[in-house]
Design a protein around this nucleic acid. Structure first.
Lengths: 352, 352
DNA sequence: GTGAAAGCGCTAACAC
DNA sequence: GTGTTAGCGCTTTCAC
């Protein structure tokens, strides 16, 4: 319970604190082996552990980065957290995880906290269109990597983005449905407030247009930006929206969901309506979370290469924290579609 | 980019640093309104933000707790993280999240790191039978709440446990299967190394015994403690084990899975084998993660009251950190079974 | 090779 | 009411 300091170690080893500090910091070459041994013994005997807080105050350095996600309750973000942590750990960095619950104010205050804690680099999964709420931090020197958010015109120049091309992904998904013969395709999302969601919606419309369909006639649910749905509620939202849509007069034969959790909810909603996924209504998701493959039926979805993205995000961040920063290059990956069993030709085309 | 300190604020407001500090710490009553206003203006104009690191070094306090989980990749732990964070935030505490990947050494080193960072309370989701690897920390004064781990005989007295009664839960699950008429019931788990897993297995056997069945004849997979399967791989494990079991000569008609992720994998394995969940093989999970209800078929599972458990864990921790600690009371909650659609009578009993 | 000394930015007695 | 002072535990020149 007693806190043992560097001084006590020094006294026990009959050296000065600075010598102990030298040892602690690997400056062992200029030190007699005997001295070194004495110090090491003292450290062990006293059970000494340097205070990171004190060191940090002195050096201003912390080997840690922040990660702000909408919610680790969503397996996609949970998986990202794992991968980022793995990447960080190989370089001796730690990851502090924060849930913003997609609340801009909470996001900002977390960033502020992280800064006050001495953290100078964070991976932000915000996807809010504007990053105005964080520019003050950026000006103070915070290094930010935006994840899953396309670079925007007005973005601060110091910002690095790591994301999949969401428009392309959604387009791929929609084209797949189109090729199967679907014509009445719905799009289910929560609020379209975030950039990546807007992008996905854009890709959806683009595919429809290319197929000669009127994107404005497409079924979009909910019509306007709805209440803020968190990420955990994505499934609830999908379920409710699917139920609603399937009750309408112009039932869709296929549904593009904004992400996998939403897609799983959609599938549930389809079953609630007494229908069967794939046979009656096709569903495509986005993200390719682990559960997608496990689901019944296994979900056709757009794959995001999470491990690579996490590693890239970390590398960028570290480079810029450690100063070896060449001006940040953003990374825009091309996603691909994983066709599984939640999609099939519409009933009308069966057997053709 | 320039760091503004309390001194500069003091100078700008023509007061001393201590007065600024007083304001910062709410000791505003003994201060002329005019002074207070001057300081506040200065703070705003300079964009001053106190350094938490310095404050921490001085006071030895951090309003933060640690959370060590096997892996946030598992939605159950992700959900716990969210709930714990919610509970902590209401009291102004932050949560630092660490993934141990069920590696004792990693667990220990994380605890060590947290301690070095000034954190004095952590929620540990270890479930390793022995907590020997953390007793040194406990002796140094770390307050630990073990989560999802039954109190053990040799536990340090200062340890508080918050958990569901795993044996009862598994017994409930098994009895449900028994009542439906199942007799060949399998148990699928990863390594049985952790306490809660042992407990669940015990409950499973107890139910069998009470029904007059020979628990030793039960199908347990994998037979012995297997390779360490992480929490994300639980689903993989379930899938592989189910495949294996269903290929055998004594096929089970029902399966108790160690947790929901495993159960989802089991369901997938059942379908891989060309069978149907519930109709051909019943499956019961454990945890009641969000996905359980979304799955097809919705999973019958043992419910853990996560929000309450998280709140209790936090309250215990805070009480003991802040010293108002009456000797820690452990909390053992009674879980209940949620019957959904992954369980049904065995085919032989159908229609009786 | 090793030690003395000066802080990092903040807080909390204790003076005034 | 407000300022002075003395550190919290560590690192790091710069002497010796």
């Amino acid at each position: 319970m007693t806190k043992v300091t560097i001084h006590e170690v020094a006294r026990a080893a009959s050296v000065s604190p600075s010598t102990v500090s030298n040892l602690l910091n690997g400056r062992t070459q200029r030190m007699q082996p005997a001295t070194q041994a004495r110090i090491e013994t003292a450290i062990r005997k006293l059970g000494y552990h340097p205070s990171r807080v004190a060191r940090q105050l002195r050096t201003g350095q912390v080997r840690a980065i922040g990660l702000v996600v909408p919610s680790v309750g969503n397996p996609f973000w949970g998986a990202l957290a794992r991968h980022l942590e793995a990447a960080a750990l190989t370089e001796g960095y730690h990851v502090l995880l924060c849930n913003s619950e997609r609340d801009p104010e909470r996001e900002r205050s977390y960033l502020e906290e992280l800064w006050a804690d001495g953290i100078r680099g964070v991976v932000l999964c915000s996807s809010l269109p504007s990053l105005d709420h964080v520019t003050p931090l950026l000006e103070r020197g915070l290094r930010l990597v935006a994840f899953d958010r396309m670079a925007q015109a007005g973005d601060p120049p110091s910002l690095v983005n790591v994301t999949v091309d969401n428009a392309v992904g959604a387009q791929l998904a929609t084209e797949h449905l189109l090729q199967l013969g679907h014509r009445r395709i719905a799009f289910i999302s929560g609020s379209l407030g975030s950039i990546n969601r807007k992008e996905r919606f854009r890709g959806f419309r683009a595919a429809l247009e290319q197929a000669g369909l009127d994107p404005d006639a497409a079924l979009v649910s909910p019509d306007a930006a709805t209440t803020q749905f968190g990420d955990v509620e994505a499934a609830e939202l999908g379920r409710a929206a699917a139920t609603e849509l399937l009750r309408g007069r112009r039932k869709p034969t296929a549904i593009v969901a904004i992400n996998d959790m939403c897609a799983l909810g959609v599938c549930r909603g389809i079953r609630d309506a007494g229908l069967e996924v794939a046979r009656d209504v096709s569903v495509v998701g986005f993200d390719d979370i682990l559960l997608a493959e496990l689901y019944a039926p296994p979900l056709t979805t757009v794959h995001q290469p999470l491990p690579e993205m996490a590693a890239a995000a970390f590398d960028h961040l570290r480079a810029r924290i450690e100063g070896s920063a060449t001006a940040g290059q953003s990374l825009l990956l091309r996603p691909h579609l994983v066709v599984r069993e939640s999609t099939a030709p519409p009933r009308s085309k069966r057997g053709t």
